Lab assay of single mutants.
Amino acid sequence: QTIHNGDQTYHYDNPEEAIKVAQKLAKIYNLTVTVKGNTVQVH
């Protein structure tokens, strides 16, 4: 599972963990989380 947060990319073995982290980032920075296959984008 990969999270793209602007210019930063994070890799997680656990998809659920990746989505949790993405949602935390989204709340902190007031962003949107988009899940596309194995990629979670925060923008």
Rank of each mutant, 00 (worst) to 15 (best):
Q8P: 05
K20D: 05
K36F: 12
K27D: 06
I3G: 10
I3Q: 10
V33R: 00
N5I: 14
T32N: 09
A26T: 08
A18R: 01
Q23M: 13
V33Y: 01
N5W: 14
Y12D: 00
N14T: 15
N30G: 15
Q41W: 14
L25H: 00
N14L: 04
T32H: 11
T32E: 07
L31F: 07
G6Y: 13
V40G: 00
N30E: 04
Y10T: 02
V42G: 01
Q23D: 06
Q41R: 13
T2H: 13
H43F: 12
I28H: 08
T39M: 10
D7S: 14
N5G: 10
K24H: 12
V42R: 01
N5H: 13
L25E: 00
T34L: 06
A22P: 00
Q1G: 11
T39H: 03
V40E: 00
E16F: 07
Y29V: 05
T9E: 08
V40S: 00
K24P: 00
Y10C: 13
E17I: 14
I3T: 11
T32Y: 09
V21T: 05
H11Y: 14
I19N: 09
T9V: 14
L31S: 03
A18Y: 02
N5A: 11
P15H: 14
Y10G: 02
Y12A: 03
E16K: 07
H4E: 09
Q1D: 10
V42D: 00
I19V: 08
Q1H: 12
V35M: 02
K36T: 11
H11I: 14
G37W: 04
H43E: 03
P15F: 07
N5R: 13
D13G: 08
H43Q: 05
T34E: 05
L25Y: 03
T34S: 08
Y29H: 08
D13L: 09
L31C: 14
I28V: 08
E17S: 06
G37K: 02
Q23S: 07
N5D: 10
D7R: 13
D7V: 15
L31E: 02
V33E: 00
I19K: 12
Q8A: 12
Q8V: 14
A18D: 00
T2V: 11
Y29E: 06
V35R: 03
Y12C: 15
V21K: 04
V35Q: 03
D7W: 15
H43C: 13
Y10P: 01
H11A: 06
D13K: 14
T34I: 08
A22V: 02
P15S: 06
I28M: 12
K27I: 09
V21F: 14
E16D: 08
V33Q: 00
A18L: 03
L25W: 08
G6L: 12
V21M: 15
N5V: 13
T2Q: 11
I28D: 08
K20P: 01
V21E: 09
V33H: 00
H11S: 09
K27M: 13
N14Y: 04
H11R: 09
D7T: 15
D13F: 05
N38Q: 04
N38S: 10
T39F: 05
E17A: 09
V40K: 00
I28N: 06
L25I: 05
I3C: 15
A18Q: 01
Y29D: 04
K27V: 07
I3V: 12
T9P: 02
L25K: 00
A22N: 00
V35W: 02
V21R: 05
K20V: 05
V40W: 02
V35P: 01
V33I: 08
T2K: 10
G6K: 11
I28E: 11
A22R: 01
I19F: 13
K36V: 14
I28P: 01
K36R: 12
Q23N: 08
H11G: 03
I19Y: 13
N38H: 05
G6T: 10
Q1K: 10
T34N: 03
N38F: 04
D13A: 14
K27L: 14
K24C: 15
V42L: 05
G6Q: 11
T32L: 11
Y10N: 01
N30S: 07
T39D: 04
Q1S: 12
E17W: 08
Q8W: 15
E17Q: 12
H11F: 13
K36A: 08
V33G: 00
A26H: 06
Q41K: 10
V40F: 02
V21Q: 11
N14A: 04
G6S: 10
Q23F: 07
I19S: 07
A26D: 04
G6M: 11
V40L: 06
K20M: 10
E16G: 06
N38M: 05
K20R: 14
T39E: 05
K24W: 15
E16Q: 08
D13C: 14
L25N: 00
N30Q: 07
D7F: 15
A26F: 07
V42P: 01
N30F: 11
Y12T: 03
V35C: 04
T9K: 05
Q41D: 02
N5M: 13
H11E: 08
A18T: 01
T2L: 13
G37M: 03
V40Y: 01
H11N: 05
T34Q: 04
V35Y: 03
E16L: 08
T39N: 04
Q1M: 13
Q41T: 15
Y29S: 06
K24N: 07
H43W: 11
P15D: 06
I3W: 11
I19H: 10
I19R: 14
A26R: 15
V33N: 00
H4R: 10
E17K: 07
A18G: 01
G6E: 09
T39P: 01
I19E: 09
A18F: 03
N38R: 05
I19D: 04
G37I: 03
A26N: 06
E17P: 00
G37V: 02
N14W: 04
K36W: 10
K36H: 13
H4N: 08
V40R: 00
I19A: 10
Q41Y: 15
G6H: 14
N5Y: 13
G37P: 00
G6F: 13
T9Q: 06
N30R: 06
V42E: 01
V35H: 02
A18E: 01
T39W: 07
Y10W: 09
Y10Q: 02
